[in-house]
C-alpha cells in the first residue's frame, strides 16, 4: 500500500516521493518508490543489505540523481530545473553512518561552516547558533574539541548538530549508529528521541529494532528496490503480512 499516510498530523507532507526510480547502469536499485512523510512523523526504514535504503535517502537530497520520478520536500520540487538545490539541501539534514565530520575543524567549526557559508550568518551569530545546536546534542562543553578527540558517539552527535543547526524541515539518518560500539549507541538514540519529542520530521534507516518499536510512527520494509510493506511498528513487527517481511525479521531477530 504505497503512499499510506502516517497518523500524526494532517496537512501537506514534508516529504513526497512519487514513482522514484534509480538505476546504476543496468542495475535498477529503486523500482518506483512512493512515500509520503508527514510533519513530525518518524518513518523507520528497514530491509536487507542492498535493498536500496541508502539510495532512497540519497535521492531525497539529490546526493544521488534519480533516474525518474518526483521528489517534493516541503512543497519544493527538488528535481525541477529552476530549483536551487543548495538552498533546498539546507532544509534537509542528513546524518551518515561514518559521521563524516571535517577533521580539520573543531566541533563548533563543523557546525558553523554551513551556517556561515550557506545560511549567510556572520561569525558571531553563527557561533551562537552553533553553541545552541551543540547543546541540543548534549555536547556544549566539546565545542573546541577536534573530531579525533571525540568518541564515536560524540562525533555522531556533532554530525547531528551540524545538520540541526541549519533548522532543517526534515532529517534523514542513514544507519546513524551502525559504526558505533554498542555502549555508545544509546547516547545517539537519546538525541534522536529528543529531536522527535521536539517535533522534528525524520526518516531513519537503521537496524535498531527496539528503537523502531518505541519511537517510530511507521515502519517501512524495503526489498529489491521496492516498498514491500509498511505500517505501524506493532503491526510490522507483530503481524507482518508479507512473507519477505517475515523472513527478514526472522533473520534479524535470530542474530
Amino acid at each position: 500500500m504505497p503512499g499510506t499516510r502516517g497518523a500524526v498530523t494532517p496537512g501537506p507532507p514534508i516529504l513526497d516521493v512519487r514513482g522514484l526510480r534509480k538505476s546504476f547502469g543496468p542495475l535498477e536499485v529503486l523500482k518506483g518508490i512512493d512515500l509520503l512523510v508527514d510533519p513530525q512523523e518518524l518513518v523507520f526504514v528497514i530491509g536487507p543489505s542492498g535493498s536500496g535504503k541508502s539510495t532512497l535517502l540519497r535521492c531525497c537530497n539529490r546526493l544521488e540523481e534519480p533516474s525518474s520520478g518526483h521528489v517534493w520536500v516541503d512543497g519544493v520540487d527538488i528535481l525541477a530545473r529552476a530549483t536551487d538545490i543548495n538552498a533546498v539541501r539546507r532544509t534537509i539534514g542528513m546524518v551518515f553512518q561514518s559521521f563524516n565530520l571535517y577533521p580539520h575543524m573543531t566541533a563548533l567549526g563543523n557546525v558553523t561552516l554551513a551556517l556561515r557559508k550557506v545560511a549567510g550568518f556572520a561569525r558571531p551569530e553563527a557561533e551562537t547558533r552553533g553553541h545552541v545546536a551543540l547543546e541540543r546534542v548534549d555536547l556544549a562543553e566539546k565545542a573546541a574539541a577536534y573530531p579525533n578527540e571525540l568518541s564515536g558517539g560524540q562525533q555522531q552527535r556533532v554530525a547531528i548538530a551540524r545538520a540541526l543547526a541549519l533548522e532543517p524541515k526534515i532529517m534523514l539518518f542513514d544507519e546513524p549508529t551502525s559504526a558505533l560500539d554498542p555502549e555508545l549507541v544509546g547516547s545517539v538514540l537519546a538525541v534522536m528521541r529528543n529531536m522527535r519529542a521536539s517535533g522534528m520530521t525524520m526518516v531513519v534507516v537503521s537496524h535498531e529494532m527496539r528503537f523502531a518499536r518505541e519511537a517510530a510512527d511507521r515502519v517501512i520494509f524495503m526489498d529489491h528496490g521496492e516498498i514491500v510493506e509498511e505500517g505501524p511498528p506493532e503491526r510490522i513487527f507483530g503481524a507482518p503480512e508479507e512473507g519477505r517481511t517475515r523472513a527478514f525479521l526472522a533473520s534479524v531477530f535470530d542474530r
Binding site: 537530497n61 546526493l63 543548495n86 538552498a87 533546498v88 539541501r89 539546507r90 534537509i92 539534514g93 542528513m94 551518515f96 561514518s98 563524516n100 565530520l101 571535517y102 561552516l113 554551513a114 557559508k117 550557506v118 545560511a119 554530525a159 551540524r162 545538520a163 541549519l166
Partner: peptide, 14 residues
Amino acid sequence: PRGQWEAARSTGLT
C-alpha cells in the same frame, strides 16, 4: 574520502 564531499554538499555548500 567521498564522505567529506557528501557531508558538505548535504548541508548546502556548493
